[in-house]
């Protein structure tokens, strides 16, 4: 298991549903669970990732950067339990979790 933490400047959208959390995905082989929680982060976004696949830090950074560029979220904590999902699946779950809070 490897733990990765990322924090980035967020975009223009704060979560607006008023929900305390949204979950997308399930922790199963080649899949992951993304828990999104609104949190006062001064406009930033944070990602806490636990993953079974070590040494993929660059790939995570690329997927997350792309996601932030695409959806422009701010003030959200994303907690992730990953079971070796490929990047497009990570991307899809991030979108779904974010859409759950929108």
């Amino acid at each position: 298991m490897e733990h990765l933490s990322f924090e980035f400047d967020g975009g223009v959208h704060a979560p607006k549903s008023g929900k305390a959390y949204a979950v997308a995905g399930v922790v199963a082989s080649s899949n992951l669970e993304v828990l999104a929680q609104p949190q006062e982060l001064g406009g930033r976004v944070r990602f806490e990732v636990d993953t079974t696949a070590a040494h993929f830090q660059d790939a995570w950074r690329a997927v997350i950067t792309d996601f932030i560029e695409r959806r422009q979220p701010r003030d959200v904590l994303f907690s992730i339990n990953d079971f070796a999902a490929i990047p497009p699946v990570v991307s899809l779950r991030l979108d779904q979790a974010w859409e759950g809070l929108e």
């Binding site: 305390a20 929680q37 636990d50 990953d82």
Partner: peptide, 21 residues
């Protein structure tokens, strides 16, 4: 005990297995 409580398994880590919230 919703996932935000993160009451995960204290044991799976021993087996290098992923947990769920």
């Amino acid at each position: 005990l919703p996932p935000t409580e993160k009451r995960t398994s204290p044991h799976l880590g021993l087996f290098d297995a992923p947990v769920s919230f």
